[in-house]
Every structure is written in C-alpha cells, then in structure tokens.
Design a protein around this nucleic acid. Sequence first.
DNA 1: TGCTTATATTGTAAAAAATACGCTATGAAA
DNA 2: TTTCATAGCGTATTTTTTACAATATAAGCA
Lengths: 242, 242
Amino acid sequence: MKDVKFNYNPHISVDCVVFGFDGEKLKILLIERNIDEGKEFYSDKKLPGSIIYEEEGLDTAASRILTELTGLKNVFLTQFHSFGDPQRSSNPRDVNWLEMTTQTKIGRIVTVAYIALIKIDRKIVFDSESTTAKWYDLDDLANMKLAFDHNEIALKALSFMRRFISLVPNALFELLPKKFTMTELRSLHDIVVGVTSDVRNFQKKVLQTPGLIPLDEVKKNVPHRAPKLYSFDKRKGSKIFF
Amino acid sequence: MKDVKFNYNPHISVDCVVFGFDGEKLKILLIERNIDEGKEFYSDKKLPGSIIYEEEGLDTAASRILTELTGLKNVFLTQFHSFGDPQRSSNPRDVNWLEMTTQTKIGRIVTVAYIALIKIDRKIVFDSESTTAKWYDLDDLANMKLAFDHNEIALKALSFMRRFISLVPNALFELLPKKFTMTELRSLHDIVVGVTSDVRNFQKKVLQTPGLIPLDEVKKNVPHRAPKLYSFDKRKGSKIFF
DNA sequence: TGCTTATATTGTAAAAAATACGCTATGAAA
DNA sequence: TTTCATAGCGTATTTTTTACAATATAAGCA
C-alpha cells in the first residue's frame, strides 16, 4: 500500500478534515475502517490521516495522505491546529490499527490538523485496502464516536473553517461546483457563516466581487424557473490569508 | 536545570514568540545563547522554546518552557502554527546546542509555535544557566539571523498576531500596563493593526467597550497636560476566539 | 507668576455601508 | 392554461464610519 522506500516518523501525524457541500448541507469525509479483532469484527470511523515520513514536510504529508486515502489531488488544504494531549493516542484499538496499517511501532503521537475544502462532485476513490471513504452529514458528527480525538479535531476544524471563510469568503468557491447558481452560493454562505442573508442584498454585494462571472447559461432540469449559472475566476478574485 | 524525573520527547518542540509593547514600539523577547565551540565562542539568538516531555501536553509544555526561560507565569499563550520542514533542524550548531542543554539525542523536530502577549513591565528572569532573555525591537528582526527557522516563525507569528487582534481587540490589553492612557491604547492598536486612527473616533468606539473603566487618576510626571488613566476588566469585556 | 510648550479633551455633519422590504417573471408539471 | 415553485430585480431607511478643529491643562522656564 505504501512506498517502502520511505521510513515513517511514528511521532507525528497529519489529519485532514475534508469539507464538502451537497447543495443543502455541509459534509465531512470520513474513513471507515474495519478492524479484525480475532473474536469479533469491529468497524468505526476516523479522519483521513496518518503518520508522516521521516523526510517529509507537513503540508506535503497532508497532501500525500489525502491522495492515498481518497485519490484526491490539488486540494485546497490549510493547517489549522496541532493536537498533542498525551492521552490522545492511548486507545489500544487506535494504536493497534495504526501499527498494523503502517507496520510501525507507535507511541505517543502529536498530530497536525488540516482543513480541506473540495467540490463534492470530484471523483473520490472510495475504497482502499482496509478503508472506505464516505461523506457524512456534519450534523451527525455529534452522534458518532470517531477514533483518537477526532471528534474534537473535527469540531475545532469547523469553528476554524467558519472563521476562515468570514476572513476569506472567496474560499467558499472551493466547495461549489465550477458552475453554480446564486442560490447555491447564498445558501452555502449562510450555512457556513451562520446567518440568513437577504436575497437581494446578498446578490448586490456578491456581484461586485471581481472574478465572479455570470454565464450565458441556466441550470437545466429544475422543476421551476431555471436559474442563471455563474462561475468564479480565482485569478481575478483572490485575497490572501497568511 | 531541568527536572530529571521527566523524559524528553526529542521529536517535538514548542517555541514561543513573546510580544511586548514599550509605549512606542512592538518588542519581541529573544534568548541569547552562548555557544562554546572549543576554538571559538559563538553567540546568537533564538525564540524561547525547547523539546517537550514525553508525558506533557502542548499548551502545558509551552507554558512550562516559558516559565523556565523567563520566569513568567500566567501568560496569555495561543498556539498558532506548526513548522515541520525536514531541514529546519539541520544546522549542526542548533542540534549540538539542543543536545547539550537537554542531554538528549536529537533528530528531526517538528515545532508547535505559540504567541504570547505580555506586559513589558513584568519582571523577567533575564539570566538562566546558559542563556539570557532580552527584548528586541521587532523592526530589527529582519537584520538578525535567528537559530533554526525562527525568523520564519517570528514573521508568521507577527502576521497571526495582527489578524488575531483584529478579531479579538481585547487581547491588546494583555500588552498594556494595568493602568494606561487612551493615547497608549490607540498607538498600540494602530501599530498592531497597521492603521492610523482618528483620535476622536477611536475614543468614541473604545469607550463603548464593556470592561473599559476610566479611573479617577491621571498619569504623573508628563511635561504637558496629564492624561487620564484607564483600566480594563477582563471579566466584563471578553470575547472568545477558539 | 505668567508665558510657552506639548499633548488632552471633546461634538457634529457628511458619506458610506448595511438593512428592510414585495412584486413580477418564467420553466416545469399537471 | 393553470398551478407551483423559485428566479430576478430597485428603492427608501437606518446604522456605521469617516472627516474635521478649537479649547483645556500640566509642566517647565523666564
């Protein structure tokens, strides 16, 4: 599964909180792992992530691991926090699983967490050797017990993402398909920022954004008046965060 | 120097970018280290930081290390970024020094960086065994070559701090003495945020802040009209960042 | 003591930005 | 052709931000 030329660094990992938007709700991409515990079969969920290689930078590792687990490349990725509670990797189930998949002896791990924003219609390799990637409703997170401290990480990621979008609204376009309607943009914005914008005022402001281009095209197959499509040109409308 | 009951984790460190304000300029607290290289004596500067203990959380480590190197306790500390370039700990001078002071074999280190905001008039233990803590003008940073990748860390800390203050202006009070004048507050604000505020408009806005209390006291020993002093009550005026 | 110097203190008007609000249009389905 | 569901679109009001300058006072000095 992994390139044996490289040695793992068993002390540091990266985890990615991958967000998507299905037109109605925010989604999070989780890895379902199947654990054969001998007497019984156990299945639970975790964030896509793994320990890094000895000779590898953090951003590189995040991007590599995301590709390995999902097939995704060229993803918008930003580091947001590191988690190092000494107890965070103390569950034997987590440790055993990691030791098995990496063939490496694991002790305490500090993890560097990233958020990723992706267009939900991108093709994802949903099955790898021992794992399956699946989209989940972000609302359901509270009812799921993820591996390690991944619940905490995901929650903090969400709060970071909201703040990040308030600062850099353009990053929203990472979550939308290439062609989108004004309503899609608005409802995504409202969900993320946690407001309910006025339709007209939102449109007014958004149309001033450099890079937002109205297309000569409408959305097909809707059971009502067809809405106009827009696209966004990054080069014209980027702001810088860091 | 350090408690021998604890084992170091030689893979992870924390570094603190400590900011202060002297009434005119932003300052950064650096550690001067003196290296005896046998044939010659070498001296340079670094951020306060060190490798963590095996059983220690990250926030705890940051706070402990800051206390060890400066004597400071109860400091405003926030994690802001982790740095993990495989080359960042490749300078033999840095590695040797760390191995000497910690008596631990060092390889690649990922560091978790924090910003600290402190009142510059707090007492600092400026001398420890092999190091001296000193305040430096932040402007001079560009002309100093710090150890490891500490120049990069300090720069990113500054940019984070500016953004942080824009979100949580109340954190400015961490940098001011307990009693301060409106002018001090304004010039600090302006330096950090990078604007020049109108005197009257600034005052107007700031006086609406809950927790900002005008005192019945003026600043003494000024060669002109004595300005009124203010203080800030955290409990009444706190916003939450994370 | 009174004059000079340096900074402190204070309000109002104009401009800009944010908000509130409802009617007509149109594609699809029945 | 009617109904349904959402698209599209402009103006008036409120709130926030900005611009701007004359008087007050503590300290130092003649």
